[in-house]
Design a protein around this nucleic acid. Structure first.
Length: 275
DNA sequence: ACCCAGGCCTGGA
DNA sequence: TCCAGGCATGGG
């Protein structure tokens, strides 16, 4: 089915560092494994996207997943006509980015893995976890066993440190186990966390070994859709120092700082690639 | 070989 | 409270 939206660009979302299981198949064509399903996306035109799903499935799942009720256009226009020249450029450059509403547990584990790794490396570790512990997804005839859902907390909680080391997650093995067991054992109650404020959710998450401020912020932003949260990684830190001389005023963007952060991150990384 | 990557933990000032 | 060093691993 077709989606019409000026602020929905698959390539930009896939390369924005918020999701690790969206991959390019060919020009303008991507695949995604999320919500226990396999989806293909084609960028037909700048504002036209084709999804390989029924209208019913779109209404039930993907409309929410891609945050299609939110008006990104308004924010982009505000930034493009605003006073901040870096954000003018960043918003124009990444205007097709949206903050996905991804699975909480998947974000928890993915961002625990993300620490001190680059994005390709994170993706390969996440994929390895899915293949080893996740449930196969039947995507099409002849493609059985090609795709795997992200493991459930129960599936991952049964892993051992030795197995995880084989998947090249390094010293994060214990972090992954503790986090998975905390959720599987109910110490970390998803439905409760989902009803919490950002501050409460972040505090609860940081109780887990291997989840510090930055990783907790990413989980809150991408897994709980607290779009007011502004995660600071090495790239954002560099921007705050080099572009803003540590005088960036977060208050100006209260309530949407997470989206601003995403435009900054994507723009800065793209600049470096072109050098 | 050296440095960096969507950092965090520990131990010592 | 703040900082240094260590940490597994892969890629440039």
């Amino acid at each position: 089915m077709l989606i019409h939206n000026k602020n929905f660009n698959i390539q930009q979302i896939a390369d924005s560092g918020q999701c690790f299981r969206m991959n390019q198949l060919e020009a303008n064509r991507y695949c995604l494994i999320a919500l226990g399903r396999y989806l293909e996306l084609i960028q037909r035109e700048e504002a036209v996207i084709e999804l390989s799903c029924s209208e019913a499935e779109y209404e039930e799942l993907w409309k929410d997943y891609f945050d299609l009720e939110y008006d990104y256009h308004h924010l982009v226009e505000t930034l493009r006509t605003g006073k901040d020249s870096f954000l003018q450029s960043a918003a124009e450059y990444g205007k097709g980015i949206r903050i996905l509403r991804q699975d909480f547990f998947e974000m928890m584990i993915s961002f625990i893995i993300s620490q001190n790794k680059n994005i390709p490396s994170i993706k390969s570790s996440v994929e390895a976890l899915c293949r080893r512990y996740g449930t196969p997804i039947i995507a099409a005839v002849g493609k059985e066993d090609s795709y795997y859902a992200f493991p459930t907390p129960q599936q991952l909680a049964r892993a051992t440190k030795e197995e995880l080391r084989e998947l090249k997650v390094g010293y994060r093995d214990e972090y992954i186990l503790q986090a998975s067991r905390a959720v599987a054992d109910g110490l970390l109650d998803l439905s409760h966390i989902q009803s919490c404020s950002y501050e409460e959710a972040s505090k609860a998450l940081r109780q887990i070994h291997g989840i510090g401020e930055k990783v907790a912020n990413c989980i809150c932003l991408y897994g709980l859709h607290h779009i007011e949260v502004f995660p600071i990684d090495v790239w954002i830190k560099r921007i705050l120092e080099e572009v803003y001389r540590n005088e960036f005023d977060l208050q100006l963007y209260e309530g949407q700082a997470g989206i601003i952060q995403q435009y900054m991150f994507y723009y800065m990384r793209s600049m470096k690639e072109k050098v």
